[in-house]
């Protein structure tokens, strides 16, 4: 009997990276959206937020692709 430590380690690494990355990026998006005001900082914040959300949407699409595959 061989325990596939490599696969186990890969699952751990991939999960940690993707979870922390996704949650981090999404949180940045949320924080960007919640910036008050309509000035330059506000617009910049919202633009950055949309980039973050787009990245998350892409990750979700990739996830659905994995499920279907």
């Amino acid at each position: 009997m061989t325990i596939d430590w490599h696969a186990l380690g890969t699952v751990l690494a991939v999960t940690l990276l993707s979870t922390v990355g996704l949650v981090g990026v999404f949180t940045l998006g949320i924080v960007g959206m919640s910036r008050p005001g309509g000035g330059g900082a506000g617009v910049l914040g919202r633009t950055a937020a949309y980039v973050c959300f787009a990245a998350c949407a892409a990750a979700v699409a990739y996830g659905i692709d994995l499920i279907a595959g």
């Binding site: 979870t19 922390v20 949180t27 924080v31």
Partner: peptide, 21 residues
């Protein structure tokens, strides 16, 4: 694996969002 990932993610999201409304 799942617990570790969500624990770290929870820490991160609270830290990043600590000043937000």
């Amino acid at each position: 694996v799942a617990g570790l990932a969500s624990m770290l993610a929870t820490r991160l999201t609270y830290r990043l969002g600590r000043n937000a409304d």
